[in-house]
């Protein structure tokens, strides 16, 4: 069993932060669909999230197995640690 390095947590937290902004804006936009500033911020956040995840997945393996991430050989997605274990 290999433990994740300390920077795993800080890099993951950057993703969690930007994905949180995305969730907040999405809920807001459901009731404010005309807010152009919020939509722009949403799109910029999506871009930032994708870039961060690309980097993260290169180091620690895929975050999803439903077509939003590519896989290396061997199939790493199934490897521990799982989110509740780290």
């Amino acid at each position: 069993m290999k433990q994740v390095p300390p920077q795993y947590y800080s890099e993951l937290e950057q993703i969690q932060a930007i994905d949180f902004v995305i969730v907040e804006l999405a809920l807001y936009l459901h009731t404010h669909p005309d807010d152009l500033d919020a939509i722009q911020q949403y799109n910029e956040s999506v871009k930032r999230s994708k870039a961060l995840k690309r980097n993260f997945e290169k180091k620690y393996g895929a975050l999803t197995s439903f077509g939003y991430s590519y896989s290396r050989h061997p199939w790493e997605y199934k490897e521990a640690p799982w989110p509740w274990q780290v």
């Binding site: 937290e13 932060a17 930007i18 949180f20 902004v21 907040e24 804006l25 807001y28 956040s45």
Partner: peptide, 12 residues
């Protein structure tokens, strides 16, 4: 900011 928002549990 995004990291402060995550800590706070709200963007606003």
């Amino acid at each position: 900011t995004p990291s402060a928002a995550l800590k706070a549990g709200t963007l606003w």
